[in-house]
């Protein structure tokens, strides 16, 4: 591998940009293609298809054999609310390989003592998300029960095309949330994407059990996102 390719690839990964390491298996030469780069001809079609599916593999193009190693940004879980559930969800999600970001303007909740070794912003979601924007590789879980804090974050997550958007609260709470978001101009199709009540139905009772249900639901969304990703590119 060309050292320049490795450096460029690692830089893309740090910056959360989708990239493919393209290796010609005949002569061993490689280069990094960043999503949005133009690649001509049949190879270009294979590259575009690999970005959509996220699947690495060998392709035969014009009698030559290429290996496409697709590097999509690692999933990031953004939690709105430095609450009891978040304290359980943060370490579980870290072990499962997620980047973490916790946002809660209530400084009593968002204290480093309660959340050691986690990126924590004691700010309103609008402020924190302006600095660290959401993208299609983010999951957002709104956990505060406070519309002032949760609603703007949910709106931002739907606009950014986050692969998962979940909100804590009963069906009744969610019905009121739907009314507020509709009034705020969010489309019914977008609102439909919110997972509420949050988490897979496993009868979770304690904050830690709810965290398991939420994490499982996020992983389900992540692993089934191939189809929706290709739809959004085609649209």
């Amino acid at each position: 591998m060309d050292p320049y390719s490795l450096k460029k690839l690692n830089q893309c990964r740090r910056e959360r940009r989708a990239a493919i390491l393209l290796t010609d298996l005949g002569d061993g030469r490689d280069r990094v293609v960043v999503e949005g780069d133009l690649v001509a001809g049949n190879l270009g079609e294979a590259v575009a298809s690999a970005f959509r599916s996220g699947k690495s593999g060998v392709v035969e193009v014009d009698g030559r054999s290429f290996f496409l190693n697709v590097h999509l940004p690692p999933p990031r879980l953004v939690m709105i609310g430095a609450v009891h559930i978040s304290q359980a969800l943060a370490p579980m999600a870290a072990i499962a390989g997620f980047d973490l970001h916790i946002i809660d303007p209530r400084t009593a909740f968002a204290s480093p003592e309660r959340f050691p070794n986690v990126r924590l912003d004691a700010e309103w979601p609008q402020e924190a998300l302006a600095r660290s924007p959401l993208d299609a590789y983010c999951a957002l879980a709104a956990l505060t029960h406070d519309p002032k804090i949760d609603d703007p974050a949910l709106k931002a997550a739907l606009e950014a095309g986050c692969f998962y958007v979940g909100a804590l609260g009963s069906r009744k709470t969610h019905a009121r949330r739907v009314e507020r978001l509709t009034e705020a101009g969010v489309s019914p199709a977008a609102i439909e994407r919110i997972r509420a009540p949050i988490g897979l139905k496993i009868g979770a009772a304690s904050p830690a059990e709810i965290a398991v249900a939420v994490l499982a639901e996020i992983i389900e969304a992540l692993r089934s996102r191939g189809l929706s990703a290709s739809r959004s590119v085609a649209a």
Partner: peptide, 24 residues
Amino acid sequence: EGGTLRDPLTIAEEWMKEGRDVAI
């Protein structure tokens, strides 16, 4: 690091900077 496994490609770049010969 921070609960997640450090990945091999990051390690390969670090090794390269240290002047080590590396195979991937």
